[in-house]
Design a protein around this nucleic acid. Structure first.
Lengths: 258, 258
DNA sequence: CACGAGCGTATCGGCGCCCAATACTTGGGT
DNA sequence: ACCCAAGTATTGGGCGCCGATACGCTCGTG
């Protein structure tokens, strides 16, 4: 039972091939979310057409896939039910909802709760403010930990060795031209977050956007997520933005920490 | 290939038992989202402990389940990735996002996009306004079509026989004491929606809340979802609320219809 | 302290579910 | 009319899954 990249390794004999393949099929739509034919699914997942057919029919019958107008298969609405169950089951989400609402009201800017998940970070709650660009603000979006303000705030709470390990396993490709991808610059931001109590990032994930975040800790003082405040560079100078919102984010994150 | 309750029936020989059981395990958390032991999972899904173990290990390895502190299994963050893919793949969601943002700004109240799914209706996008009660406002929440304003707006676009069929298949249990569950009262609201172009409901899903909604139609004039505006009865009289927001919801829904 | 009831974990023989190749049917493009 | 690629359906065979069983552990309990 060893740990590899944050995922528990499993004895082969306890591993269900067909379940894993079904998950492969669903995950195939992460690359390109357009409808796919059985042949495309088979090619994308490395299984043959017969297996794709069986898996497709099964997921279709359960609502996790749907027929597109074109006749192909696309993701189904039933997936929303499962993520709803997840959100509802997570005590942090429940505690965070009213706190974030209040923060959103105070700040007047977009407010997010992200969940720390090793080399990436997922947005679980997103409270919009103004006009935003479609899917960049959907819940469920993943951002590499190393370039997210929330991710850096989480790394700041970890031991040096753990941060080094995480960064070594990260795929450090930039999302924008301003993404900091070099180890020294990332470490600099992590150290800054340790002294300031929060981290910030300007245009590293989305052009024109400045974000700051403070980490939420569990009972063992380990980071489990972060509270973000995001604003537009067309409305804010970075020093003003930091001065104004960092105390609010830190306060909210502390309220959520066990 | 017959249709039953909106789900396509599948040849038994194309149906993967272990995949279906894995989905059963995930769906078991819909009833009560707390962490479960293997024994509880086995009992809830009707499979034995060995199968639950294998499925659990597989879903755990893929991140769709996680270990709770107690040692039990709970839903995993990976579920959010799949719902993100779904939202991203749905063209309606993409078109609706800016329209709803604008509507939210104009109305100043909570705005939702729901997806029509036979006897129930799912909230896909939720733009909050003020303080709200936790999971009632999470995306992915399902409401019975017959008592949701958006669901009734959708039914108003269907043939009489189809509405009768849908209502006959519905589980018409109330969500609140004010939920209308009788067929005549529901039909009355459907007819009202046909003449008014929108539907409304007061405290039928949530106490203290009034909602109105207009249906979004696809290229064949069939309902695929609805645009909602929701307000608090502590701030609005129902006639004022209807007069003020119904034109906005109708306009937004028309803009989203193909 | 012994005990048993849970838990998660691990093992194993055997059967039946899933495998993959194949053929059929349909529809769209040339 | 042709062909290619799509989804659909069928089949025999093999091995992957099935489920009973057993092990070690941590509880709360008598």
């Amino acid at each position: 039972m060893t740990k590899t990249a944050g995922v528990t390794a499993v004895d082969e004999r306890l591993f269900l091939q067909s379940v894993a393949r079904a998950l492969d099929v669903l995950e195939a739509f992460a690359q390109s979310p357009r409808p796919k034919s059985l042949g495309e699914i088979a090619a994308a997942t490395g299984i043959n057409k017969s297996a794709a057919q069986r898996i497709g029919q099964t997921l279709l019958a359960r609502g996790y896939l749907e027929r597109a107008d074109s006749g192909g298969l696309m993701l189904g609405r039933r997936l929303l039910d499962r993520s709803f169950d997840y959100l509802r089951s997570n005590p942090l989400i429940e505690r965070a909802t009213p706190v974030l609402m209040e923060l959103r009201k105070l700040a007047g800017e977009r407010v997010d709760l992200s969940l720390f998940d090793d080399t990436s970070t997922i947005y679980a709650i997103r409270l919009q403010s103004k006009r935003e660009t479609f899917y960049a603000t959907l819940p469920g979006r993943r951002i590499p930990t190393f370039l997210s303000s929330g991710g850096r705030a989480c790394m700041a709470q970890m031991a040096d060795a753990a941060v080094d390990d995480l960064l070594a396993r990260s795929d450090r490709r930039p999302l924008t031209p301003k993404s900091r991808t070099g180890l020294p610059e990332i470490w600099e931001k992590v150290r800054e977050a340790r002294t300031e109590g929060y981290s910030w990032a300007a245009e590293e994930a989305l052009i024109g956007e400045v974000v700051l975040a403070a980490a939420v800790l569990d009972g063992d003082r380990r980071p489990i997520g972060a509270v973000h405040v995001a604003g537009s560079l067309s409305e804010w100078a970075i020093p003003d933005f930091r001065r104004r919102f960092s105390p609010l984010a830190i306060e909210a994150a502390r309220a959520l920490s066990t």
